[in-house]
Design a protein around this nucleic acid. Sequence first.
DNA 1: TGTTAGCACTCAAGGGTGGCGAGTGCTAAC
DNA 2: GTTAGCACTCGCCACCCTTGAGTGCTAACA
Lengths: 345, 345
Amino acid sequence: MSDNTSLLDIRKMRILQAIVDDYIMTAAPVGSRTVSKRSDMGLSPATIRNEMSDLTELGFLEQPHTSAGRIPSEKAYRLYVNHIMDQAKLTDDEADYIKRHLDTRVHEVGEVIRQTAKVISDMTNYTSMVLVPQLSSMKVKRISLIPVSEGSAMAVVVTNTGVTKNSMISIPESLSPDDIEKISKLITEKLDGHRLTDAIESVLPAIRAEIGEQADAVCEMLEDIERSMSETDVEVVGASNILDYPEYSDAQKARSFLTEVETGNYLQQVLKDSSDVEMSVRIGTDNDNPDLKDCSVITVTYKAGGKNIGSMGVVGPTRMDYGKVMAVLKYLSNSLSDILSKLLK
Amino acid sequence: MSDNTSLLDIRKMRILQAIVDDYIMTAAPVGSRTVSKRSDMGLSPATIRNEMSDLTELGFLEQPHTSAGRIPSEKAYRLYVNHIMDQAKLTDDEADYIKRHLDTRVHEVGEVIRQTAKVISDMTNYTSMVLVPQLSSMKVKRISLIPVSEGSAMAVVVTNTGVTKNSMISIPESLSPDDIEKISKLITEKLDGHRLTDAIESVLPAIRAEIGEQADAVCEMLEDIERSMSETDVEVVGASNILDYPEYSDAQKARSFLTEVETGNYLQQVLKDSSDVEMSVRIGTDNDNPDLKDCSVITVTYKAGGKNIGSMGVVGPTRMDYGKVMAVLKYLSNSLSDILSKLLK
DNA sequence: TGTTAGCACTCAAGGGTGGCGAGTGCTAAC
DNA sequence: GTTAGCACTCGCCACCCTTGAGTGCTAACA
């Protein structure tokens, strides 16, 4: 991958940068004259043409048809992101915008997540997505069971970091509300400090010892809780932004993008898969999802208390303003981590 | 409104019906020949033309340009929905589809709501929305406060119908977890059988009498709970379906529709406003929202235990298959009411 | 040897033209 | 009251031509 660098001399790199930069702005094939006109280039169109011809041969550029300009290939975007691109910094205005819109007084995790997704989407004008903090890696502080009706209860799990999640579970009819309260206390006591995923193996024996008769029922409940807690939620904002980009002016293309985003399965998987790499960039067919073959997905992680607890990202056309998006995501990763670290203290 | 009926003789009505039916199917202006060819009409194009000319004068039809056919006006859709349209019944296949896809074994309200929204959208191919059951009209059975971290707790409200809702609230630092548990028991006891909205006026004095010192803090908490509980959630599915209709092939139009649906404020308001009329139909500019001026919104209510507890509906182009949508919604209103009545018993 | 000017060539996009067909309104006859 | 006939309108489409942006190649130049 990084061998690519040695394949290209500095001039080719600069020309490729010019082409990618221009194409990201305009979505129109870039011609030699356009590149040559860039003040800092100092080469005639003819020379540029020769270089562009080489770049095409090397697989970095493509030609929609003979007499059109060139457009960058996926390979070009990868090189661009890894070696060429200017690392953008946010302007003061942009940093300001984030500060004003991430309200640190909000005291609910879900609300902060939604705000963050909104800010990402507003600043980049692409589709943003934020995974809500994952419980699986955290330690349980408390599990409350609240009787709701015959045969059902709400389970609320609170972790040591203060992240909460709740879900309805079914309970055996044989358990009275009092029993439930007792069990609720008991499992909180036993699970305190353990991961939920370890619950069944490590803690159940102890529970079984104390409540012989109902043990099976409790075991089932715990499994139920564990199952529902491992379900992930993801907040998606700005899906319709895609319609601002001419490559999606075709209703059919837009439709398949939006359907994919609406169901969200693939993107959720990407966020989960990337939740341990600080920043990941998937360009075009890196996404093994045909509906997103002309899209790029960039993700970053966020932390609380120094530990990764979730990830967030952006989906947009392959012709994406990588510099800007990466800068925004990096900045917001820090902001969100700060806020959550305080919030979940 | 129903005066319109007397303005039109039966033949005009039948012609108008033919035109609306055809336009709903094809989205193309309907000409006199097309109407005449309908087997049951038995009139020549020329006669139809005369009638169409009258209908245009009366404001039921519009002409995009001289030599095009006619398209129905909003006024025509209103007449069509109220007096002309054949009341469609679902086919056996469709009823079957619903039975198979509304899994009655699911025991969580939220999940049932999501399924319902999905089914509506799949069957109609428009955008569906379902308001989750509203607590405001129900009586409280239990309020649990679960300490999460210093200064914050999760409040879980359970109503007598078994609907639950939870939210984070902030609590005074001075309250210990034990205090919270005590208060949780106390307010459950006092509020049992009351509406949450009455809580503060009717119940607080009693609470105040029992816990003098912390009463203000508790009062604030209750207000906080009440506020967050009155927030409504709405499940929206199938927004991208709009791209299947040629009137939204223009990216700009599609964009404004999708943005409006994505933020959801207006539609949420409509659902809330219509939560006491069995079925409501808003056609075009009935929606005082410029982004939806070419859309129609149809809503129905659903019940549990004989009482309206929420509403759901469909948004789509004004050229909407009203008969089908109304049939689907009516059927699903019953199904959902049945399921919820059992679920929330 | 690298750079550049010149030139012939390609091809998409845009504008103009004309025919086609769906539709209308009017009139006159049944 | 209904209908056939007819002249007229106008959007759509296919066709053609022009334009212009862009290319590749070649030959000359530093």
